[in-house]
Amino acid sequence: MSTTITSGQPIPSLLTVIITTSPTPSAPSTELVSAILSSFRNHCAKLLLCRVVVVFDTYDRIASHARLKKGQVTTEGAKTFDLYKKNVTELILREFAHHDNDRILSYDQGEAEFGYSAVESNFVPFTISRTADRQITFVTPSKRLGFGLAVRSALRLTETPFVWVQQHDWPLVSDIPLESLLNVMQTIEDDERPPVEYICLPSVRLLSYAESAHVVRFPELKGLTSYLKREFITESGESVPLTPMFFWHDKPHLASTQHYLSRIFPSRLSMPRGAFIEDTVGQRARNQMKRGDWLKWATWLYYPENGRRLCLRHLQGRTWEGSEKESEKKAIWRVQSAKREYESS
Rank of each mutant, 00 (worst) to 15 (best):
H168P: 12
L172P: 00
V173Y: 01
S174L: 07
S174D: 13
D175K: 06
P177C: 00
L181F: 06
T187N: 09
D191K: 09
R193H: 10
R193M: 15
P195Q: 07
E197A: 05
C200N: 14
C200F: 11
S203L: 08
S203I: 15
V204H: 14
V204T: 15
R205C: 15
S208A: 15
Y209P: 01
E211P: 08
S212L: 03
A213N: 11
A213E: 12
V216C: 06
F218I: 03
P219R: 05
P219M: 01
E220I: 09
L221M: 03
S226Y: 08
Y227A: 13
L228H: 01
R230K: 06
E231Y: 09
F232Q: 08
I233Y: 09
T243G: 04
F246M: 04
F246S: 01
F247K: 13
F247A: 04
F247Q: 12
H249V: 13
H249M: 10
D250N: 11
P252V: 03
P252W: 03
L254Y: 00
Q258G: 13
H259L: 01
L261M: 04
S262L: 12
F265D: 07
S267P: 04
R268I: 15
R268G: 04
L269D: 07
M271W: 06
P272R: 09
I277C: 08
